[in-house]
Nucleic acid binder design. Structure first.
Lengths: 341, 341
DNA sequence: ATGAAAGCGCTAACAA
DNA sequence: TTGTTAGCGCTTTCAT
């Protein structure tokens, strides 16, 4: 298909193994090295990663399994992961599962067939896919982004959901003195969502506030909208609502507008994630920021560790902090929206 | 690493090639076939795609190069491409270039090193990356999503930008009878954007309207916002504005709000793309719909054709149609927002 | 220090 | 039909 080591060797007039050594940066007589490099350059030689991987090396590609890359948080994650990976010379195969077990299995099959070096699981709710246990058993390196997907050979990276929700509770109850608070929940069986909910609900009472209305949700815009309407119907006197992710918060803001309520004058809405897309609501969304750059870096580091040698499962928690904008009722410093490109 | 053909053969008590044949669905004596299948099942055998590809087959992975997957249109595209590919058993390696030549080159290098079967170029503005010519010269299958990236071995798939813009011009000028119209342009050197602009500007006069103010843009939310402000400052009497993509249209809507203008009561704003994220603006965005499912399917088909045999470059134009919602001033059928998950 | 040769897992041409 | 063998491009002993 293109220049091979053999060709380079032939042009340089050396043996294959000498050429290979030079190409791999192993010490060789200077004169030969020069000739080989020149030959490689001349032929536009590029190593065949497939052959290298087959020989025992690594392919230099990992899989990223998420529900849907169109979801703002997922695309932020995909972007962050790809950036980190590219810096390590790794490629990323993107797989969308729609949270459907059969699609998850199909993706795992695909990735395993290509002997991808490892898997980043940004997806799974509740039970891990059936295939997974088998693959992990075969020493396939896997890092998951939610506690739901725990297992012996699976590292976990998450942001500090508990702390994030607690901070937000404090901000709403102490700083703003809101008393009657609403909560739009995330998908059931998703540990991250549950952690946010529990921490939030638990933290409020000791701060003089409480959750007076809850709505179910599944992290979609529509769910946020519906959940908010439901809460307003149940408790028109609610003063602030936290959605367990930003996309639902945007939906909630829209629902408020639909009901003739102004955010944050009439009601405060806050989210969780600090997804880059949040600015599209036209309002500065107060939220809990998890730095996906950090998270992606942690994931890739753990994955590479595990690629090198198996070891026991680890769990890493990344820091979060409040990202205060205006939707909570705080005054807005002028034009603090972030560019979303 | 895991069961190989050799192992399957050993367990089944047949030769390697017999096992290989069964695994590849080639006719074999029923009894042997049964034994091989049972052995494969028992060992959890999965073919090693690397070895298959090295042997002369295909890896079953393509590259997708886009500027930034966080951009709504890009993530819609990535999703559509991945969906189509999965149905063909293809994996997709995602690469973000940020429109930076050095990143584009790094991505191409990565993809070529892994001997990916082909490349989908959803990115390049103006000059194609330096590497590309070389790789295409080596018969690497490439399909581009913009006319900017023309070349002998490069197929092109685009939506009918000309028709889309003309339809929109007609809708605004004839149906709504707007006379003074604004235009927020796309990135220079991007053929798709230029086609939209030219068609739009050209179509209006014969319909009794004209573009009274233009603003430069680069397809980002911020550009839409800035462009709109600029247009409003220049021509406060503008009746309708088309942005050459949806994200800028959302920015434009925000700018209108910032300036105390209601859309569509005071001014009409329309976009182009029908990105799934548009609903987040809280208003039904009238836009030109390009069906990314169709486009992705066309891309993958062309790519697979070209993988099979080179042939001359082809160019395929996909249909568009008006997606009329409320931002142009048309009455809204109740609750026609699309779920964005 | 350099070259010859084996082998990664697989398929296909050839031989039996 | 089935089995033996060569070889995809590369790295790595092993011998020189």
């Amino acid at each position: 298909m293109t220049g091979r080591v053999k060709d380079v060797a032939a042009v340089a007039g050396v043996s294959i193994s000498t050429a290979s050594r030079v190409l791999r940066g192993i010490s060789v007589e200077p004169e030969l090295e020069r000739r080989v490099k020149k030959a490689a350059q001349h032929l536009g030689y590029r190593p065949n990663g497939l052959a290298q991987a087959l020989r025992g090396g690594r392919l230099g590609v990992i899989g990223l399994l998420i529900p849907d890359v169109r979801n703002p948080w997922s695309s932020d994650l995909a972007r962050a992961v790809e950036t980190v990976c590219r810096q390590s010379g790794l490629g990323v195969i993107l797989c969308n599962s729609d949270n459907r077990p059969e699609q998850e299995d199909a993706c795992l099959e695909l990735l395993w067939n290509r002997r991808v070096d490892g898997l980043l699981l940004g997806s799974v709710r509740g039970e891990p896919p059936a295939q997974l246990a088998d693959l992990v058993g075969r020493r396939w390196p896997v890092v998951a982004l939610d506690d739901s997907c725990r297992g012996p050979g699976i590292d976990i990276v998450i942001c500090d959901n508990h702390r994030g929700a607690s901070l937000m509770a404090e901000h709403l109850a102490v700083h703003h003195r809101y008393r009657r608070i609403g909560l739009i929940k995330g998908p059931p069986k998703l540990a991250s969502a549950e952690a946010r909910e529990t921490a939030f609900v638990t933290a409020l009472p000791s701060l003089g506030a409480r959750v007076v209305a809850e709505a179910a949700g599944d992290f979609t815009y529509e769910a946020g909208r519906a959940g908010m309407s439901e809460i307003l119907a149940k408790r028109p006197d609610v003063q602030a609502v936290m959605a367990t992710n930003d996309l639902m918060a945007l939906g909630a803001i829209q629902a408020c507008r639909d009901n003739g309520l102004k955010v944050p004058d009439d009601i405060a809405i806050v989210g969780f994630d600090d997804a880059s897309i949040s600015t599209l609501s036209g309002i500065g969304l107060t939220t809990v920021r998890q730095d996906l750059g950090d998270i992606a870096a942690a994931c890739v580091t753990l994955l590479e560790d595990r690629i090198r040698d198996p070891g026991p499962a680890r769990r890493q928690v990344c820091a979060v902090h409040l990202q205060i904008r205006s939707s909570c009722g705080c005054p807005t410093p002028h034009a603090q929206m972030k560019v979303s490109s």
